[in-house]
Design a protein around this nucleic acid. Structure first.
Length: 368
DNA sequence: ATCCGGTGCG
DNA sequence: CGCACCGGAT
């Protein structure tokens, strides 16, 4: 690399870095608080900065350190994660806090090998912790950095490809300046997020464009190569928000997609406005209760990384169901419905596409 | 409608 | 190494 590269990047970072809540200086010898780095980096996996900011603020106010988080219930942690997606990250974060408190006396290790043993910590996040918190010259290679380096060297890396990630890690390791490792690491990511963006890079404003091979070849958009996404199979289902008096029947998904989150009663198959004649007997058969009132609410789609759900929403009022429902508490196995009071409904974690409906339902009940 | 993205498992 | 895992921005 020509001389002046890291100076140009760091100078731009000093002028332009956004003042993000997790970039506050830490006390006590760390560049940044390791706990704050973990929370923000777990949230930032697969998720945009603007989305994360309010979640981070609420989470850190409620769980300010490993100890407070380790003592929390999974349901409460998921509630603070509600709407952020990829809920396994929240469960990993809780498990990590428990391990840090029980096995490391509340102090995060500062060795890559140890960090990689913790749940939710892979090569990127380990590098981010080591460079952001401990100021060590460990590469933190995320999608931004792969893109920046792919363009800088005009190497057609394949996004998400482990071989490309490894190659970029080695390249970044060789680029570290003699000091300011943490700032350098963050600057590469910041540049990818703010300047060297995927579809509309601001090359004219880029502080390192004179070092960029793809720019000099007028071929920036050729790098990196995008992985072609697989087709997403669609499935159809029907959700029914069943109310009996001041109770709503919910269940908790125990594995796979959205596991740990709550949902309403569901049927496979999408039954729309015209198919009340199928929905009503299905509810009555499952609950052993009489449906007093049944309203079609609408339809919705949930697009996941690998599949699509096409859904119809109904609301039902029943009587005579409560005696037949096992009252197993919040960790009841998947499939068994439990009655939840309308007041406590807002405190349970639901996937985003149901949370909006739930909140609308609650405000309609309050308006009465 | 399309684009974007780390970790962990088998 | 392919696939499972979400939601918001554009």
């Amino acid at each position: 690399m020509k001389p002046g590269f890291s100076e140009a990047l760091l100078g731009w970072f000093d002028r332009s870095a956004r003042p993000l809540p997790w970039r506050e200086a830490a006390g006590s010898g760390y560049r940044r608080d390791p706990y704050a780095v973990i929370v923000s980096e777990l949230m930032l996996q697969q998720t945009q900065v603007a989305t994360v900011i309010p979640y981070y603020e609420r989470f850190m106010a409620r769980f300010p350190d490993f100890e407070s988080l380790a003592a929390a219930s999974e349901t409460e942690v998921l509630k603070y994660w509600e709407g952020l997606g990829y809920y396994r990250r929240a469960k990993n974060l809780l498990a990590l806090a428990v391990m840090v408190v029980s096995r490391y006396q509340g102090v995060l290790p500062c060795e890559k090998k140890e960090l990689l043993k913790l749940p939710g910590i892979g090569p990127y996040t380990a590098g981010a912790i080591l460079s952001f918190a401990y100021d060590l010259p460990e590469p933190a290679v995320d999608g931004n950095v792969v893109r920046v380096l792919s363009r800088l060297d005009a190497i057609p890396h394949l996004q998400g490809d482990p071989k490309s990630q490894r190659a970029v890690r080695e390249r970044v390791a060789a680029l570290f300046p003699p000091c300011r490792a943490g700032d350098f690491s963050e600057a590469l990511i910041e540049l990818g997020a703010a300047v060297c963006t995927p579809s509309a890079p601001a090359c004219q404003a880029c502080p390192i464009n004179r070092y960029c091979l793809a720019f000099s070849l007028s071929a920036v958009m050729d790098y990196p190569r995008r992985r072609k996404d697989l087709p997403k199979p669609a499935s159809q289902l029907t959700y029914v928000l069943i109310r009996e008096g001041e109770l709503v029947y919910c269940r908790r998904r125990s594995k796979g997609l959205l596991s740990g989150l709550f949902e309403f009663f569901s049927l496979s198959g999408k039954y729309g406005k015209q198919e009340e004649g199928h929905v009503r007997p299905a509810i009555e058969a499952h609950l052993g209760a009489k449906v007093i009132k049944l309203d079609y609410v609408g339809e919705n789609r949930a697009v996941f990384s690998h599949r699509i759900w096409e859904m119809a929403f109904w609301e039902a009022e029943v009587s005579g169901g409560a005696g037949l429902i096992p009252r197993d508490g919040p960790d009841a196995p998947q499939g068994s419905l439990l009655p939840v009071s309308v007041e406590s409904l807002a405190g349970l974690p639901f996937p985003a596409f149901l949370a909006a409906w739930r909140d609308d339902f609650i405000s309609r009940r309050e308006a009465q």
